[in-house]
Write a protein that binds this DNA or RNA. Sequence first.
DNA 1: TTGCCTACCTACCAGTAGGTAGTGGGTTAA
DNA 2: TTAACCCACTACCTACTGGTAGGTAGGCAA
Lengths: 207, 207
Amino acid sequence: MSEATSPESNRSTRDQILDEALRCFAEKGYEGTSLNDIAAGVGIRRPSLLHHFPSKEALYGDVFERLMSEWLERLDAAVAVPASGWDKSELVLRACLDLFAETPDYVRIMRREALDGGVHLGIDLSGVLRPFFDAAVQYLESQMAQGVFTQLDARHLLITGYGAILTYFSDAPFVDGLIDSDAMNEKNIRDHQEHVIGFFKAALLKS
Amino acid sequence: MSEATSPESNRSTRDQILDEALRCFAEKGYEGTSLNDIAAGVGIRRPSLLHHFPSKEALYGDVFERLMSEWLERLDAAVAVPASGWDKSELVLRACLDLFAETPDYVRIMRREALDGGVHLGIDLSGVLRPFFDAAVQYLESQMAQGVFTQLDARHLLITGYGAILTYFSDAPFVDGLIDSDAMNEKNIRDHQEHVIGFFKAALLKS
DNA sequence: TTGCCTACCTACCAGTAGGTAGTGGGTTAA
DNA sequence: TTAACCCACTACCTACTGGTAGGTAGGCAA
């Protein structure tokens, strides 16, 4: 019937595990998540989970890899769109903001990984993003040199922007308490997006 | 002699534990830190540590309380200084930036707590900061209404600023890899501080 | 039928977690 | 001297961790 064939149900279970692992690692961190938690969320036992992934570390690695590749894909797509000046920056900003709004768990895992200093993986988070970072620095500096953007330290500007964007999603429960409203509801997310865009526009463009 | 009296040496051990616990919780998180780690760092066994603190949770609570009270103290002091307009904002910004530069472990714990949604404590992080947040919102809005500051959403502006400031410290290892330099050395920290100040000034003041 | 495969299971391993009970040395004070 | 207290210790508990061993049910191909 619908899932009689073994390859189909196989992929499905594997993906269910990846989804649940993403949720758990984002929610409770690497150390705070047990394989039992993940397995229970999928409805199987731990050994069955370990049939699909050789170890906890490997599972975490796969979750993280999927996350990074999706992010880089979006970045690539945004950069490929022909545009210049502020419009270009806005395109990239929106690409990130959209992805993070769709999957805030990505943000939470990334933050945890940055906090932990990349202990759980061989992967070097900053190394993967480095090409984009360098390209962005070059772009910003050229715009500043042409007088299009306000003169600022491009590297620090990017790090500041990274923090400004991600924090809203990663610290959503904390934000909830500050604004007395669900940070992750549609309206608030849209407000955050427009605020970030407007804020950077105000800082970078002398009106 | 210098530490012969029992209350003094008691306090000393207690403080050593608090210091080591701060370091460990900041470095590896609540789940990733064992009482053995902390005890070993102080040079005692776990049961001896539990003689000074009734439980891991209580120890964590004390660490966090010390942290928050120090932060609030700094904020109070900064707010008390008579100033207005941009100068006032800069005073508060610098007070936070200075504290975080002195004790980056504070920042890392706060971020972890925000990420975990305050699971490890009864304390509600956003509740404690709420009075300052509300006061800051009021101040910013009054400045915007007077045309001193650019018109922006004050709440989102504060959250953005919070993220922009803290991220540099909390994600220092990640930043290292991006800028190819030790993010926590004196010069880079100073650069970050001046960048944040300059960035907010550029966004808030129409020049 | 036979044999191999996948996907799951129960049962178990060694190791470590947080926490408790009870011991004993050292200092202090009566 | 004796009694008290403080503080650190060893030894132990239960619960749970990641991971493994071995077994089983069902699908599929020769």
